[in-house]
Structures are given as structure tokens and as C-alpha cells.
Design a protein around this nucleic acid. Sequence first.
DNA 1: GGTGGGATTAGCT
DNA 2: GCTAATCCCACCA
Length: 208
Amino acid sequence: MISSYTILFTVSFEMVLPKRFYQKPTTELAKALLGLVLVHQSPEGYASGIIVETEAYLFKNDPACHAARGKTPRNTAMFGEAGYSYVYQIYGMYYCINVVSGPVDFGEAVLIRALKPLKGIELMQQRRNTNKNKNLCSGPGKLCQALAINRSHNMLNLRSSDLKLYKRKGSQEVSHQDIVCTTRIGINQGKELPLRFYIKNSEYISKP
DNA sequence: GGTGGGATTAGCT
DNA sequence: GCTAATCCCACCA
């Protein structure tokens, strides 16, 4: 009885977003993802966090975008359907996760840069080998480590996989006034473009 | 509190 | 070969 009640409770408070939500322009999606929850239900357990920082990567006039020079084996996911994941390895040892946006073949995506830890904090502490919650998911490589996201999670449907995005029922869209826009972090080209977004006053964003 | 270098590997040129 | 949408730790102040 208790477990079935729990399942109903959980389902009713996790709202998967429709496909069209992801088909909007990439900079719009980058802002719209703020406040949503990213969750990974893995064999080890459940871990989730609220998205507090994102970056948009555009096909046109954005040399930092992996898709800017056309489709390759690595960036194929960016040319696929909106609402799917694009996960790639960086610096030989870390992973970053993006949410594909726009129409098929558009070649754009949103990098998830930081989460506010929500559930499974103990598991995330083990995976990250720290008990400082502000250091669990405050960077794109960190959050993938905390949620155990790796190359096997590339090109997954984020509406129906063990790795999923959802909106907390009753949660409000983050208001325009609470979103800060800056230039992106950790890139050598396209540094001047204002495509990084984060929730104002969040203690869980990454540091440049 | 701030900085400099090392780890480590797939994918591109 | 070289680079990369990063992170961590040792070391200095």
C-alpha cells in the first residue's frame, strides 16, 4: 500500500514536457530549462537536481558549437530530434550533457552546466567523493559525475529514458527578472556571445 | 583566496 | 600530432 501510494505521488509531481517544448529556438530553450529537474534512475539509485545554469550552442556564427563545421560521428545527436541528449567526453576524463533543440538537422543544443542537488544527495556525494553539496553539481563535468552520466547516455529521449527531464508540478517558470545572461565559460572561440544563462543568486552555479 | 600545472583519451586535421 | 563546452590539488600569499 505504501509503495503504490508513493508511486502515484511521484508520478503526479513529475510532469514530462511535450516534444514541442524542446523545438523552440535554442536560446529560448536554454532559459526555459532553468528550474526544470534532471534525473538519472541508475542501477545504483536515483539522483536528481534542479537546473540552475545553461549555455546555448548555435549552428550559425558560433565557432564554439560542435556542429558548426557540419555533422561528424561525435556530434550526430545535435542533428537529431529535439528533446534528446547529446553527451560527449571532454579532456579525456569528463562528460558533458546537452539537450538537443529545434527542428531535426538544426545542429543546436543547450549545455547543462549546473544543478542544485535535489534527491539522491548521498549517492552523489559518494560518486563525487565529497560531502560539500555546493561542489556536487556546480559544473558540467561535475554534474555528469554526480548523476553517473557517460557516453552510453548519448542520444537518449529525455522524455522517456532512465535519464529524464521533468517539471515539478506547480513550479513556476523562472521569471525573466531572475535570469542572468553572460558570456560562456571555458571556450576559446565565440567568447563574446551572450549565451550563458543562470538563476540569479543561486549558490550552485559553476565558477569561471 | 588565488594560481599553475597535470590527468587522460576520442575525435578531428 | 594536437586539442578540448573540465576538475582537482599543491603551493604561494
